[in-house]
Amino acid sequence: MQNSHSGVNQLGGVFVNGRPLPDSTRQKIVELAHSGARPCDISRILQVSNGCVSKILGRYYETGSIRPRAIGGSKPRVATPEVVSKIAQYKRECPSIFAWEIRDRLLSEGVCTNDNIPSVSSINRVLRNLASEKQQMGADGMYDKLRMLNGQTGSWGTRPGWYPGTSVPGQPTQDGCQQQEGGGENTNSISSNGEDSDEAQMRLQLKRKLQRNRTSFTQEQIEALEKEFERTHYPDVFARERLAAKIDLPEARIQVWFSNRRAKWRREEKLRNQRRQASNTPSHIPISSSFSTSVYQPIPQPTTPVSSFTSGSMLGRTDTALTNTYSALPPMPSFTMANNLPMQPPVPSQTSSYSCMLPTSPSVNGRSYDTYTPPHMQTHMNSQPMGTSGTTSTGLISPGVSVPVQVPGSEPDMSQYWPRLQ
């Protein structure tokens, strides 16, 4: 039975679970980093996980050691009161100082060594604690504590007292930064006198190289990059290397530039699409467009005044059976039934097929058609009795279509119309 579990990581490298990497692998990681390889490249070359490479390099940059820390136990506290007071002093002298600059000053002034120097995250935590204590304490208590930490007896009751030896409130920041720059020169002199001055200088240079600022491109470089971006948004590694040799930039910087440029292009394309949609959409909808001609068919113009009344309900007709019959029939052209047409008796099958359309009241044959006459024609229609054979009435077949029909004066039988409509 094995005491430890061995495995293979996602890159194909072998590791022992819970145990640190061998010293030979750690040394190779540092050597590759000094030669300029990126952590992701080191991870692929040595088949070590990216997190492990970053952790080893980060500890090497901070402490200069590649040895693993002790497994188990607690780390001794490195942010001692003396170190905290120095950090507060540096922050007062130059409020814009960075944590890694404070760390360098602690090393250069001999406050800490490589073994007990606090990390950048520890210094940031100390600065946050100082800021929170400043908010919790009152103004007087804060000034007393700062005077105690600074070891001075001057008056701290006013704002300019934060910067000793100065009279203009805006000047101390520059003086403090100048003092810090002077301390940086002392850093070089002190570290050069040490035993491991060369190694420390190499480590600091490598650290500065990794902690780079934003790349500033010249106009020629920007023009070359934009020209390549117009050709393709995704250049391959050969195109990037050719462009890197042409404009004297690292291939990694060119790759990052193209990634950022593609993101910018997507944002601009989104804005262009929004403007295009806004320009195509009308600002207001016309009133006429809300009524579609496919839904509402136009009603033909009436030929006679009587045809303006298109349904039985508008003429005072309360018989719903006839109203439904007229509205359900398709529109037909106007025609006239003459008196000489043969009077065919209704076929029983045809009569039964339209039995649902006729009223059940037996008085329908005896009703006159003056009910369908509009009010303004009552006088004219009353002067001509319906009993004469020459009287013409208008029957409504569908809305908007008038059918003048000659009705025999002897017997106005409704059943004569249905064979004609089939």
Rank of each mutant, 00 (worst) to 15 (best):
W100M: 06
R105S: 12
S85E: 14
K28T: 09
H34T: 08
G7Q: 05
G13K: 04
I45Q: 07
A70V: 12
S4H: 13
S35E: 13
R69Y: 11
L21E: 04
R77E: 02
G73W: 01
I45W: 12
I117C: 08
N124Q: 00
R19K: 15
G64A: 05
L146G: 07
A131N: 05
S43W: 01
H34W: 12
S108Y: 12
N3M: 10
V83P: 02
A33D: 04
G12Q: 02
S49E: 01
K91W: 00
K134M: 09
N17T: 05
M142S: 11
V120E: 03
V48Q: 03
I42Y: 02
L107I: 11
P22C: 07
N114F: 12
S24T: 14
R67N: 13
N114L: 13
Y60I: 00
F15R: 05
D23L: 06
L21N: 01
T80P: 08
K75C: 05
G36Y: 04
V16D: 13
G51F: 02
V84Y: 05
P118C: 05
L107V: 13
S74R: 00
C52A: 11
P76K: 08
G51I: 02
P95Y: 13
Q89L: 12
I102Q: 15
T63A: 05
D41F: 08
Y60H: 04
V111L: 14
C52T: 09
L46S: 04
L107S: 10
I71D: 02
I117T: 06
P95A: 15
P95M: 15
G13W: 02
E82Y: 06
M137L: 10
N3Q: 12
G58S: 03
G64D: 02
L32N: 03
N9L: 02
G58E: 06
L46R: 01
G141H: 15
Y60K: 03
E93G: 11
A37L: 12
P76D: 00
A79F: 05
G36T: 04
I117P: 14
M142V: 12
L107C: 09
S132C: 10
C40R: 07
G51D: 02
A99Q: 07
L21V: 06
W100S: 08
G64V: 00
G138N: 08
A70K: 05
S65R: 09
G58D: 14
P68V: 03
S121I: 02
S121A: 05
K134S: 14
V8Q: 07
V78W: 01
F15K: 03
P81W: 09
S74P: 00
G141T: 12
I29F: 03
G18F: 01
S35R: 13
N17A: 00
A131I: 13
L106I: 07
S35I: 08
R59G: 02
W100K: 08
D23R: 10
P39T: 12
P68S: 05
P81S: 11
M142C: 09
Q47E: 04
E109F: 10
S24R: 13
K86A: 06
M137G: 12
L149W: 10
T80N: 05
P81G: 15
N50A: 06
Y143V: 14
T63M: 03
R128H: 05
D23T: 05
I29E: 02
